[in-house]
């Protein structure tokens, strides 16, 4: 069992870095996408919604394959890691855009009115008034999404990225002790998601305290 653990731990680095990079891409790209989703221009709004809904309705495994076989097979040779990060990053952007948007829309209308009445320029209003309140609301659902992403990162193994699931599959093929090996894999995933879940709980608590007082 310890041997298996030792073998699977080799994949932790890839699992964590695929998750972290994809989440980072999503966290950055999700923001402009959320703003486009709130545009005053109907076409822009619909366009953004179409992109978000399309990406969200394709299974992650299909997205990763699509990236791997389209972008990755053309002029630019993509490694398995890059392909997985791009695919999962696109999915993250779509989900986080909706999470940001919900956060922004949760800010009370009086806050927007006060910022407008005080003649704050649009960018300053977002930076100093709206986003500090919106992001706090967005943290718990974003953390929940991050845990889901950590699990979804296992699809990277199907294109050959050497993550936890990749090594688990390899070991089980070699030793035929699949149950034990995948139990070890499950424990590893749980261990990795605990800190994120902790962050979610903590921020949720901090938020409710702030709303209550």
């Amino acid at each position: 069992m310890l041997d298996f653990a030792e073998s699977l731990v080799r994949g932790v680095g890839q699992t964590v870095s695929i998750t972290a990079c994809a989440f980072l891409i999503g966290a950055v790209l999700g923001f402009p996408l959320a703003l486009l989703r709130r545009s005053r221009n109907v076409l822009v709004r619909w366009g953004a919604a179409l992109v978000i809904d399309t990406v969200r309705s394709i299974p992650p495994i299909v997205v990763v394959f699509l990236v791997f076989y389209s972008v990755g097979s053309g002029a630019v040779r993509l490694g398995t890691f890059q392909a997985a990060v791009i695919g999962l990053g696109a999915i993250s952007a779509a989900y986080l855009a909706e999470i940001y948007r919900a956060g922004i829309e949760s800010v009370a209308s009086g806050q927007w009115e006060a910022a407008n009445a005080l003649a704050l320029p649009s960018r300053k209003m977002y930076v100093h008034v709206i986003l500090p309140q919106a992001l706090l609301v967005a943290i718990p659902p974003a953390a929940t999404f991050a845990i889901g992403l950590l699990k979804d990162s296992a699809v990277a193994s199907v294109i050959g990225a050497q993550d936890i699931t990749f090594f688990a599959f390899q070991e089980s093929q070699a030793t035929l002790q699949g149950l034990t090996i995948f139990l070890v894999a499950a424990v590893l995933y749980i261990a990795l998601s605990l800190p994120v879940a902790g962050l979610a709980r903590w921020s949720d608590h901090a938020l409710s305290k702030r709303v209550a007082t």
Partner: peptide, 19 residues
């Protein structure tokens, strides 16, 4: 904004920035 900076407004629900 150019106009609004000359006009102060006080709301029923205060609308202070809570953070």
């Amino acid at each position: 904004a150019e106009h609004r900076r000359h006009v102060g407004m006080v709301f029923q629900s205060f609308n202070l920035f809570p953070h």
